[in-house]
Design a protein around this nucleic acid. Structure first.
Lengths: 359, 359
DNA sequence: GGTAGGTTTGGAAACGATTCCAATCGCGAT
DNA sequence: ATCGCGATTGGAATCGTTTCCAAACCTACC
C-alpha cells in the first residue's frame, strides 16, 4: 500500500467540520467561525491556534451549511440554447469571467430551444436556490413563473420574451447591425438583396427579418418576397432553404444570412452551385465565428460582442437588488466587419476579378 | 400596481418550507417528506392532502437542506481549459447530456490551462461539496490534493497527469489518430512531412509529437528535425510558428497540424504565401471543427469524439464508487476523415489540377 | 374482548455552518 | 474594594431537509 497515494488517498474519512476544528483548537465553534470569516474580534493567540488547527485538519467550510444559514448559495444558473454554438460559448466565457470576480459559481444547462425543457431547468435552478439566473431564453413566459415563486432575480440576454417586459435584459443592437449590412450591400449596388433566416441562438429571428425588410424599404431597394426565405432549425433545414433559394432564383446577387447556421449553408450551397463569391454572389452573415475568417474569401459579417454581453449580464444580475421597478435593457452595438465576401454585382463598374480578395 | 406582474411578482416573500406544507396539510413534517420523496407508507387520503398543500404553496424542496442531510449535492464540477474551444464545448455538451439522465447539475469553470487557477477551482468545488469532478486537466498533481481531502471522485478526460496514475480517465486514442494521418500522408508520397505543434486543449501535445516521430520513423520516411515546430500557446504564436516553417522551408509538401489552432494557422499562412492547397502543400489537422468542412478545399482531419468523451466521463464518474483500486482508462478511437486538403506532392503521378476537390 | 401484527403517523435528532446574546475576564477609575 | 466598560468567548438557536424510533391506530383472529 505504501507509495500508492494519489487523489484517492482517503475516500472514506469524512471531511472535517467546524466542530472538529473547534475541538482541536480548544475553543468554541463561534470562535472558529469568527476567525475564519474575519468578523468580530478574536485575540491574536486564539486566532493563531484556530488557524493552525484548521490547516492541520485540512478544513474546508461546507458551502451547504453556510448556504443554509446565510440563505444564499453563491452560485448562479445559466440557461443556454446550446453550449456548442460559438455565440453561446463566447457568451458563457463572459459570464464565467464576471462570476469569478464576484466569487460565484455558475451552473450551466442547455434548453435546445425547447420551452418545456427550459421550464424544467428553471424549476431545478429554483430548487437549488441559485442566487440568480442568466438566460438566453427560448420559451414562453410560463416557464419563468417558477422563478418568481422564490423571488429569483433573472436577467435575459440576446433576446427578450414579450410577455415578460419586466425582466432586465442585456441585448445587442441587432437592428442596427442588420441595417448596416443591408446598407452596405445596397450601397455596393445590389438592388434585390435576399434574406436567409434560420436558427440563431441569441436572438429572435423575427427581429432580424423585420430589420431587413425595413431597411430595404427605407433605402429604396426592392423587397422581393420570393427572396426572403426562412429555415426552421438545424443545419439541414438551413441548407435546404439556401439550396431552394439559389435554385429558384439564379439571379440573386447578394444574400444576408441571419446567423452562422444559415451563413454556413449559404457558403456551402454557393460552392455546390459553382457560384463564385463574391463575383457571382455576395454574402454577409450575422455573427462572427472563427471560420468566417478562414473562408475563401473571408466572410464579411455583423459581429456581436458575445463575451461582453455575458459579462454585462452577470453584472446586471449582481446590481439588480439595488434597482427597483423595471430597468431599461443594456444595449451593446453590433459591428459590421468588412472582409472579402462582397462586391458590386456583375456588370457593375468596380466588380473585381476572381483573384482579388481582402487580407 | 395592478397588472404589473412578471417574474418579479414576489421578490420579498420567503419561499415555503416543508414546515409550512406540514402545517397547511395538518400533518407532521416527516409525513410531508415521505409523500414527496415517495418513500415509506402514507395513506392515500393524507397523500392527497399533502400534495394539494404543496401545490397550493408552490413548495419547492431546498436542495440546501436536503444536501446537508443527505451528504450529497447532486451536482458535479467540470473543469475545462476554455469553454470557447470547440473540442471543450462539444465535450461539455456530452457531460451535460449524461448529467441530465443522472439528475445532476453541472458547475462549470475554466482554468485557461493555468495550474494555479485549476487548483483554485478544485478547492472551490471541494468547498461546494460537489459529488464529483470531471476535468480536462492542465495542472500539476498538487492542485488535486484538495480533492482527496474530501474524498472527491475525479475523472480526467483527454489528458492524464503522469503523477496521478490512479485517477480514472477517459481518453482518445490520439496516437492511433496521428499514426493514421501520417500513414495517409506518407502513402500519398510525402517523404518529409512537417509537424506543427501547438496549444491543443484536450490532449498533451507531446503525445501527438511523439506519435508523429514514431510513425514517420516506422514508415521509413525521413524525420527532418527542421520540420517539426512547436508553438507555445495562443493564435499568434501558432501563426508565427507556421509562418516560420513555411518561410524557412519553402520545400514542405505536407504538414500535420496538432490541433485546430495550429491548423488554422497553417491554412492562413499557406494562403498568405500563395501556396495552393493541396496542389502545393497538403494539410491534415487534428480535431474536427465546423470550419474544416467550409474551408476551400475542405480540410482532412483526425476527428476525436468529443461529445462521447464527455458522456463517458460522466458515466465513469457515476460508476466509480463501485470500483475499487485503479480503473483502466476508457479509450475511444480517433478517426481520419479524408476531405480535400491532401494530394500527392507536385510532380508525382496523380497530382490533381487546381480545380478538383472533394465534395 | 383481548392481543398480536401491521400500517400510519409525528417528534426529535442529525447535517454544518452563522450569529445573537449573555457570560466571563481584565483593568483602570472612583 | 467595588464598579463600569470594552474586549473575548462559548452556548444555543436557526436555516430546511431526512430518517430513526416510538406511539397510535386499525384489523383480524383466537
Amino acid at each position: 500500500m505504501a507509495g500508492d497515494e494519489g487523489v484517492e488517498m482517503a475516500p472514506d474519512r469524512r471531511a472535517a467540520t467546524i466542530k472538529d476544528v473547534a475541538a482541536a483548537a480548544g475553543v468554541g465553534v463561534a470562535t472558529v467561525s469568527r476567525v475564519l470569516s474575519g468578523t468580530g474580534s478574536v485575540s491574536p493567540a486564539t486566532r493563531e491556534r484556530v488557524q493552525a488547527a484548521a490547516r492541520e485538519l485540512d478544513y474546508r467550510p461546507s458551502a451547504l451549511g453556510r448556504g443554509l444559514k446565510l440563505r444564499r448559495t453563491g452560485s448562479l444558473g445559466l440557461v443556454l440554447p446550446d453550449v456548442t454554438d460559438p455565440f453561446c460559448a463566447e457568451f458563457t466565457a463572459g459570464v464565467l469571467d464576471c462570476a469569478r470576480t464576484l466569487g460565484e459559481h455558475v451552473i450551466v444547462d442547455v434548453s435546445h430551444d425547447d420551452p418545456a425543457r427550459e421550464a424544467e431547468i428553471v424549476e431545478r435552478f429554483a430548487g437549488q436556490r441559485v442566487d440568480g439566473i442568466i438566460a438566453v431564453p427560448s420559451g414562453d413566459a410560463a416557464g419563468w413563473r417558477a422563478a418568481s415563486a422564490v423571488g429569483l432575480p433573472v436577467v435575459f440576454a440576446g433576446r427578450v420574451l414579450d410577455d415578460l417586459p419586466a425582466v432586465p435584459a442585456v441585448l445587442c443592437d441587432d437592428r442596427a447591425g442588420v441595417r448596416a449590412a443591408v446598407d452596405y450591400l445596397v450601397g455596393l449596388g445590389h438592388r434585390r438583396p435576399a434574406f436567409l433566416g434560420g436558427p440563431a441562438p441569441g436572438t429572435a429571428v423575427e427581429v432580424r427579418e423585420r430589420a431587413f425588410r425595413d431597411t430595404v424599404a427605407e433605402l429604396g431597394a426592392v423587397l422581393d418576397e420570393d427572396l426572403v426565405v426562412r429555415a426552421r432549425s438545424g443545419r439541414d433545414s438551413a441548407y435546404a432553404a439556401a439550396a431552394g433559394l439559389f435554385q429558384r432564383r439564379p439571379d440573386v446577387t447578394a444574400v444576408l444570412a441571419a446567423g452562422h447556421v444559415p451563413g454556413e449553408a449559404a457558403v456551402l450551397v454557393a460552392r455546390e452551385f459553382d457560384l463564385r463569391v463574391p463575383a457571382d454572389v455576395s454574402i454577409v452573415m450575422v455573427d462572427d465565428v472563427p471560420w468566417a475568417e478562414l473562408c475563401d474569401p473571408p466572410l464579411t459579417v455583423v459581429s456581436r460582442p458575445a463575451r461582453e454581453l455575458g459579462y454585462r449580464a452577470c453584472e446586471v444580475l449582481r446590481r439588480r437588488p439595488a434597482t427597483v421597478g423595471r430597468t431599461p435593457p443594456v444595449v451593446l452595438p453590433a459591428e459590421l466587419v468588412v472582409r472579402g465576401s462582397c462586391s458590386p454585382p456583375t456588370g457593375m463598374p468596380g466588380a473585381p476579378p476572381r483573384s482579388s480578395r481582402a487580407r
